[in-house]
């Protein structure tokens, strides 16, 4: 894995991220419910992971050598589904079925419906423990697979996250990389108001993690963080990715009311035209 991303690669990732964002808006408008802010904010992270960083095979989702990605903050699954569709795990057409009766794209990820995901989630705070379990099991088997765990910043309120963090530190899980969607919002308002997290980097360091801050909308910055995290083999790493909830649609950026709201048909049209032509 090279450290410097070429301009061509960056351009390609930007296009992927834009397509993912457009799909997110389309599927949410069709579903008429669901979460918009978090998914738009994490589209760049997902684009980099699925189109550059992850060892995976969309044609063979159960490939044993794949990296494992646990989405702990399951409510942002529109970005997972859209990215998986663009990567070839499922037909793009299927995105329209989000949240509909009988769909594989459940309102929150349910692995029984879509086994290409590593786990089910939605209830917050439970993913990191599962990722720790995967990393421990892989290590016992002498495997080198990387285990990623994505979490929300509000989600870090849950005590279970810190129980898992303590264990990962104790076990020196060098193959575990956590990524925090540091968007400063949760449901009741800003994270500062609901439950301040600062100093966050130092909290993880105190739990014997290697902590890195990155710009969640800058592919080079994110890539540097991931490469640095992969090079740390005697500790788990956490990447605190600074993101903007609603990123790409200025009229909803940073507005916590968009945590769990879907755009109307008219809003969706407007948002998509802005995404297609940001200078508008």
């Amino acid at each position: 894995m090279t450290t410097i991303l070429s301009n061509i690669k960056i351009k390609e990732l930007e296009e992927k991220a834009r397509d993912i964002r457009i799909s997110i808006i389309e599927m949410l408008a069709e579903a008429k419910s669901g979460h918009t802010g978090g998914p738009l904010g994490m589209a760049d992270v997902f684009a980099l992971l699925y189109f550059y960083m992850l060892k995976h095979d969309p044609q063979n989702p159960s490939w044993s050598e794949r990296d494992r990605l646990v989405l702990s903050n399951g409510h942002i699954c529109p970005v997972l589904y859209a990215t998986m569709a663009h990567a070839g795990y499922l037909p793009l057409e299927e995105l329209k079925t989000l949240r509909k009766f009988g769909s594989r794209l459940q309102g929150h990820p349910h692995r029984e419906f879509l086994p290409a995901m590593e786990t089910s989630s939605g209830p917050l705070g439970e993913g990191l423990s599962q990722a720790v379990g995967m990393a421990l099991a892989l290590r016992v088997d002498g495997k080198e697979n990387q285990v990623y765990c994505l979490m929300g910043d509000g989600e870090l309120n849950e005590g279970q996250i810190w129980e898992a963090a303590m264990l990962a530190g104790k076990e020196k899980l060098g193959k575990l990389i956590g990524i925090v969607d540091r968007n400063n919002i949760q449901i009741d308002g800003s994270t500062d108001k609901v439950m301040p997290l600062l100093p966050l980097k130092e909290k993880f360091e105190a739990f014997n993690w290697h902590a890195i801050e990155a710009d969640g909308h800058d592919f080079q910055s994110l890539n540097n963080a991931l490469v640095e995290a992969q090079a740390i083999t005697d500790k788990p790493s956490i990447i605190i990715a600074r993101t903007i909830p609603g990123k790409g649609v200025p009229e909803i950026e940073n507005d916590y009311h968009w945590h769990g709201k879907a755009p109307s048909k008219e809003e969706a049209e407007r948002f998509i035209s802005v995404l297609k032509n940001p200078s508008l």
Partner: peptide, 8 residues
Amino acid sequence: VGEDGGSH
């Protein structure tokens, strides 16, 4: 609860 799904 509806659309949020079985986990909720």
